[in-house]
């Protein structure tokens, strides 16, 4: 049974290039909403998450909302197991498919097909499994003969189609989306939405970080409002969105 449990999780990023106080002062002046502090060795630390606790169980569709730099992406990365918390524990049970910035982790010089194989292998499929799913993925992307051209010739929307198709084909139990499908055109978004709904119907966990109220309302039932790395509100989508919009 898929499940995500964050228990007093804190994450902070050491910034080694910003060693001096003047740069630190400039960062502060720039009004970053992340918290900036210094550690014992007087390195600059940017707080990503601070003492965050949350539990998401199977069948839940949760939206992460909040301003830029509130910690939404960081929280997704903790759930994906990419960042291990500095303090607290993150327990994630189930097969995770992360879908963050679409271009990351794709090789621009390789063809669409090659990228399907590479991405599939990274996600833990075997070559045989990918071969079995290749046609289905190719069909879903509707990219046709573009799949044999290098990825650098693709538009952002085409790249989004490709990574969405591969990431969702592994039958994940947990899907982590970071605005990932925003770049697609209307027809594709409709198709993606159908696939997401089918996924949600199978009682998987969906966590979506998004600034789009429409998308959040359509896909999610619960929302977490993040501010400066903390969870400040949690509840039904409408309530949390109302509070978020009210504050902003």
């Amino acid at each position: 049974m898929a499940c995500i449990r964050l228990d007093h999780v804190s994450v902070s990023f050491p910034i080694y290039t910003a060693g001096s106080r003047s740069i630190r002062a400039r960062l502060m002046a720039a009004g970053s909403s992340g918290r900036i502090a210094t550690d014992a060795a007087s390195r600059v630390l940017v707080r990503g998450l601070e003492d965050v606790s949350a539990e998401i169980v199977h069948g839940e569709r949760v939206a992460l909302v909040g301003r830029n730099g509130a910690g939404k992406t960081t929280m997704l990365r903790v759930m994906a197991g990419i960042y291990e918390p500095v303090a607290g524990t993150a327990t994630v049970e189930g097969k995770v498919a992360p879908l963050f910035e679409v271009a990351l982790g794709m090789d621009p010089e390789s063809t669409g097909y090659e990228n399907i194989v590479l991405r599939g292998l990274y996600l833990g499929l075997s070559k045989a499994e990918i071969r079995a799913k290749a046609d289905e993925i190719a069909e879903f992307t509707e990219l046709g003969s573009f799949l044999s051209l290098p990825l650098r010739t693709y538009s952002a929307g085409m790249q989004a189609r490709l990574s969405f198709a591969v990431s969702t084909c592994i039958d994940p139990e947990i899907l982590l989306l970071d605005e990932g499908i925003g770049a697609g055109d209307a027809a594709f978004l409709e198709k993606a939405r159908k696939r997401l709904n089918a996924f949600v119907a199978r009682a998987g966990i969906l966590v979506l970080a998004s600034h789009s109220d429409t998308l959040v309302r359509q896909l999610c039932t619960r929302a977490l409002l993040l501010d400066q790395g903390r969870i400040v509100a949690c509840g039904p989508v409408d309530e949390v969105l109302a509070r978020y919009r009210g504050e902003a």
């Binding site: 994906a80 963050f100 982790g105």
Partner: peptide, 9 residues
């Protein structure tokens, strides 16, 4: 970097 920050392997 790109892969490490995107996918867990």
């Amino acid at each position: 970097e790109g892969v490490i920050r995107q996918l867990r392997a």
